[in-house]
Design a binder for these strands. Structure first.
Length: 424
RNA sequence: GUGGACGUAGCUCAGCUGGUAGAGCUCAGGAUUGUGACUCCUGCGGUCGAGGGUUCGAACCCCUUCGUCCACCCCA
């Protein structure tokens, strides 16, 4: 019988991995909380139509990467490939957007049927942040300042660079797209294969082609900046001024376009060079038209998503995960022989009551005393508490430091908690 | 979807021109009646990813398939 294995590209996150996940999630939670952002939780499955209408019919995501299936009643449902669409749907559906401003965030798994590689999986996890009802560049700036603070909290400052661009309103972008396509059509045979295809699918993507011949053609191509409407241009220059004032470094990348149709005006990416091909750890932009497009009232909006796997990969590559994150135990309580089992359980409970934040691991499962000490060592605990016949007779416990050369002491059981509280 | 590399013990990997499976780590026990980390000894542990073919004989050669990794595409 062949063993059943996990689905390709969908990974188990094992016990030695969960501490760093919790570390990242709690850090993000803390920083977002500082800015007054509220958490929202949406279903993982939505009507397929939601993603088609928001992400765009001709994007790769919708065309070939969605996990779409029929519900038992015949409805077409899809495992969410990203969070913005569902967030907008939920917020609109429950009246969270009308005549008010909102700062929301969420986290959870997303699903895209792509070929897995480093930093890219079929089930992956994002932390998404979405802001509604704020038209000005101040909220764009707040989001970027917030991410900069998050990098600082994680020790990542200097390891990711910020690229920004303005792709204008959908109207001005449409005019530009036509001009670009018209220009490139003249040199179609000089473009690389991928870019020829992109002429039909996603012309703006050709701008960051790596092919030398294509790059040569692009030298004289129309520039998006020349086609920007006045409002987008002002918005962008104000944003740059706000970032300058806040001390957030950035570079303007005119070739930066986003893959999802709903973006307009501000777009940005935080990129690292330490992860190979999948170097974008955080990306987003403004999507003022989406709420209306999904049937709501016109509502300005801006947001971004971070890839948690990529963030963790980066932290581990740079060895930035603090040691305390992986420490499993503070105190390990041994029990020598059957006679010590009940007293050891009771003593460990006393310790937990007296030191609520300490991790007190009690030995279970028998084994020689030697092996118990070995496990105490492996647990990472700073102190071993030793309970055997002698200690029980004397109402004491052995207190043995495991991380320095201090000698072992005999402490009355009644005083042990107070004694350890001083040390841990 | 395309290209390349790779699948051998729980983990990291050796295994020569084809001759019948190895090491280190981990784990258990011992040297040390009740004391971890260092050392030494012993032991547990494998359908060599799966299926087929060639051969007296395949972990090794051939085909198919599944999976992993990296890159392209695309994206977090």
């Amino acid at each position: 019988m062949a063993k059943i294995k996990a689905i390709r590209g969908m990974n188990d996150i094992l016990p030695d991995q969960t501490p760093v996940w919790q570390y990242v999630e709690s850090t993000v939670r803390k920083v977002l909380g500082q800015y007054g952002y509220q958490e929202i939780r949406m279903p993982i499955v939505e009507q397929t139509e939601l993603f088609k209408r928001s992400i765009g019919e001709v994007t790769d995501i919708v065309e070939k990467e969605m996990y779409t299936f029929e519900d038992r009643n015949g409805d077409s449902l899809t495992l969410r490939p990203e969070g913005t669409a569902g967030c907008v749907r939920a917020a609109e559906e429950h009246g969270l957007l009308f005549n008010q401003t909102r700062r929301l965030w969420y986290t959870g798994p997303m699903f895209r049927h792509e070929r897995p590689q480093k930093g890219r999986y079929r089930q992956f996890h994002q932390i998404g942040v979405e802001c509604f009802g704020m038209a000005g560049p101040d909220i764009d700036a707040e989001l970027l300042i917030l991410t900069a603070r998050l990098w600082s909290a994680l020790g990542l400052t200097g390891h990711a660079r910020l690229e920004i661009n303005s792709i204008g309103t959908s109207e001005s972008r449409k005019v530009y797209r036509e001009a670009l396509v018209a220009y490139l059509q003249q040199y179609k045979d000089r473009l690389d294969e991928d870019s020829q295809r992109r002429l039909e699918t996603n012309p703006l993507r050709i701008l960051d082609s790596k092919d030398p011949a294509t790059r040569e053609v692009l030298v004289n191509a129309p520039v998006l900046d020349d086609y920007l409407d006045e409002e987008s241009r002002n918005h962008f220059s104000q944003l740059k001024a706000l970032l300058d004032a806040a001390g957030v470094a950035y570079t303007v990348n005119p070739a930066l376009v986003r893959g999802l149709d709903y973006y307009g005006k501000t777009v940005f990416e935080w990129i690292t060079d330490s992860l190979g091909a999948q170097g974008t750890i955080c990306a987003g932009g403004r999507y003022d038209g989406l709420v209306q497009q999904l049937g709501g009232k016109p509502t300005d909006a801006v947001g971004f998503a971070m890839g948690i796997e990529r963030l963790i990969l980066l932290l581990e590559t740079l060895e930035l995960v603090p040691d305390y994150v992986n420490n499993q135990a503070d105190i390990y309580v041994t029990a020598m022989g059957d006679i010590a089992t009940a007293p050891a359980l009771a003593l460990a409970e006393d310790l937990r009551t007296a030191m609520p934040s300490a991790v007190v691991v009690g030995h279970c499962g028998g084994g020689s005393f030697k092996s118990q000490m070995k496990k105490a060592d492996r647990s990472g605990a700073r102190y071993a508490v030793i309970l055997g016949e002698n200690e029980i007779r004397n109402q004491t416990a052995g207190l043995k430091p495991l991380r320095d050369d201090q000698p072992q002491r005999e402490v009355p059981q009644a005083e042990l908690a107070a004694e350890l509280a001083k040390l841990v």
